[in-house]
Design a protein around this nucleic acid. Structure first.
Length: 560
RNA sequence: UGGCCUAUGGUGUAACGGUAGCACAACAGAUUUUGGUUCUGUUGGUUGAGGUUCGAAUCCUUGUAGGCCAACCA
């Protein structure tokens, strides 16, 4: 290792969780073992927030030679489904991580039942017959202590008997719960005799009808961590008050001492991630589904053309801390462009076609021109583009009365056709309404790309496709779903904040013929327009492309 | 009004008592057969008030602001 490397390593800064992990390793805690877990509840699709959590938990394991389990926190049968389990596993793998184990909290139900019984035997849990309202009323408020209910003083034997009969299904749903007996006066509301088990006669996606009592989060999560000998159990800030209970359970049960650490969830501007709001977007038809490319779900980002590497890099760059945040969407877009710039194959596509006729080019002739697949990749290779007398160019690349800084085509000016010839605009053809329908141009035969000796220096290069050879396609242009940075914290109605232009469908795009074979999962840059990927709606002979993200566009900015 | 968490450029994040740095964004320039990429530069910051110290973003006190907690959700 050189001095430079040492210096670099020294200056690299760690986030607070990496510091904790490194300190634990240095102290030989758990024999230096690092074992994390990603614990989604299978009640919906994973979104960007989960993506950063995946990167955090799996990333820590990878970085420190540890392990990371994927554990489904499936303790509430009424909201959870196998469909979600499958999509979550798929999303985790797509993100680029392979779980050490794929586990389910529901597999621990027998053990968890035993833990609860242990607490009862220690006099630390009791069966409460009160209604939800009664329990809430006796819990007090943050400023007033709670008061004991009539069941709090039940004997261990009675509690054991009642709890067993709860399990046997002798009591009606909602009629009794098991509660920890801790401290009704605790300033931490979570410690005021928290509920541990409730009765639910519901079919569970894995355990079927084996159980009619299900553990609450606090009776399942930490215990599952402990069973799996998780060393660092990382969760979001809203669980901070639960840590006291997490530790209490582990202490009283005398089980493996997993430790909980909390970080601030990362929020992304111009979107929402609350399950309720995402559901509303889907149900009210504001988007086409959970994987509509405008959604912040992992499946939607994948469909839109974001790469897992870009999302991982984004998570790395925004870092990790404990303060509230709203990460600017532009950083995610930067990461997506950065990755795609390296790997996307360049292609020519015209979204808003304007006909160009090269008057001095032989009608019916086709010439195949070589062009780079990716100028950023020396091994990217080349392909052939057909050139002919009639072409399509972008409407935007022509202006009859251009402003001063416009240096594309206008009457009398020249432009280079990318990888082809320099043309000059001689004549503008209009329809009865005065709309420009065609440009009649001449080309300079000695200006062919790669062998140009014309001496001409046009101010710009524009993209084009040969009219005869182009294939038609639908192209979907996406923009941010909301018009405000932080829709979740806006007092206005959800509805008012939606961006009416979040989707623009281009029905009549013209693509270079090589794009006919493109498949979802492949990445392209339509030159000068942005990054695009085939959508899953594509059908043979009817390709559909999604715009992942535009290119940075200095001209667009200069115009406004 | 009880407890807990958090405050560093527009945004995100470093600096662990010793020169406030990095990235994105913004702006300017160079290069460019993508108004892309790449390269260079510029603007801009420690929540207020006290205190400790030779020296404070950092430690202490006290304000202020934001967030979380009284689900048979996780």
């Amino acid at each position: 290792m050189t001095t430079d490397n040492i210096k670099e390593e020294k200056t690299e800064s760690l986030n607070f969780l990496e510091e904790i992990v490194e300190q634990d390793i240095a102290e030989g805690k758990h024999e230096g073992r690092v074992h994390t877990r990603f614990p989604p509840e299978p009640n919906g699709y994973l979104h960007v927030g989960h993506a950063t959590s995946i990167c955090l938990n799996f990333g820590l394991a990878v970085r420190y030679g540890g392990q990371c389990n994927l554990r489904f926190d499936d303790t509430n049968p009424v909201t959870e489904e196998t469909e979600y389990v499958e999509s979550i596993i798929n999303d985790v793998r797509w993100m680029g991580f392979e779980p050490t184990n794929i586990l389910y909290a529901s597999d621990y139900f027998p053990q968890l039942y035993g833990f609860a019984s242990d607490l009862i035997r220690k006099g630390l849990a009791y069966v409460d017959d009160s209604t939800a309202e009664e329990i809430a009323a006796l819990k007090g408020t943050p400023t007033e202590p709670g008061r004991p209910g009539p069941c709090r003083s039940r004997s261990v034997a009675e509690n054991l008997d009642l709890f067993e009969r709860m399990r046997k299904g002798e009591f009606a749903e909602g009629s009794r719960v098991l509660r920890a007996k801790i401290d009704l006066a605790s300033p931490n509301m979570i410690m005021r005799d928290p509920l541990l088990y409730r009765i639910k006669f519901a079919h569970h996606h894995r355990t079927g009808d084996d159980w009619c009592i299900y553990p609450m989060y606090d009776m399942a999560h930490g215990q599952s961590d402990s069973i799996e000998r998780i060393t660092h159990s990382i969760c979001t800030l809203e669980f901070v008050p639960h840590r006291e209970l997490y530790d209490w359970c582990i202490e009283e049960l005398g089980i493996f001492p997993s430790k909980q650490y909390e970080f601030a969830r990362r929020n992304l501007s111009y979107t929402v991630v609350s399950k309720r709001k995402l559901l509303k977007l889907v149900n009210e038809g504001h988007v086409a589904g959970w994987d509509d490319p405008r959604m912040p779900t992992i499946s939607a980002m994948r469909r839109r053309g974001y790469t897992a590497a870009a999302i991982r890099e984004w998570a790395k760059r925004i870092g990790i801390a404990k303060r509230e945040n709203l990460v600017d969407l532009s950083l995610l877009e930067f990461c997506v462009r950065e990755d795609l710039n390296k790997l996307a194959l360049r292609a020519m596509a015209v979204l808003d076609p304007l006909k160009v006729v090269i008057t001095n080019y032989p009608a019916g002739q086709t010439e195949w021109l070589e062009t780079d697949n990716n100028p950023e990749d020396p091994n990217g290779g080349t392909r052939q583009l057909p050139f002919s007398q009639e072409l399509w160019i972008e409407q935007e690349d022509f202006m009859e009365n251009p402003p001063p800084k416009f240096f594309r085509l206008s009457p009398g000016t020249m432009a280079r056709l990318k990888s082809a010839y320099i043309i000059q605009c001689d004549e503008v053809v209009k329809d009865a309404d005065g709309k420009v329908t065609e440009l009649r141009c001449t080309y300079f035969p000695n200006s062919k790309s790669g062998e140009d000796n014309s001496g001409l220096k046009p101010k710009t290069t524009i993209h084009w496709v040969s009219a005869e050879h182009a294939i038609p396609a639908e192209v979907r242009l996406y923009d941010r779903l909301f018009t405000v940075e932080d829709p979740a914290n806006d007092e206005r109605d959800f509805q008012e904040l939606l961006n009416p232009d979040s989707l623009k469908v281009v029905e009549n795009a013209r693509l270079e013929p090589s794009l006919a074979a493109a498949k979802p999962g492949e990445y392209f840059q339509f030159i000068r327009l942005g990054y695009f990927t085939p959508d899953t709606d594509s059908a043979p002979g009817k390709p559909v492309f999604n715009r992942t993200v535009t290119l940075r566009d200095a001209w667009a900015k200069a115009k406004v």
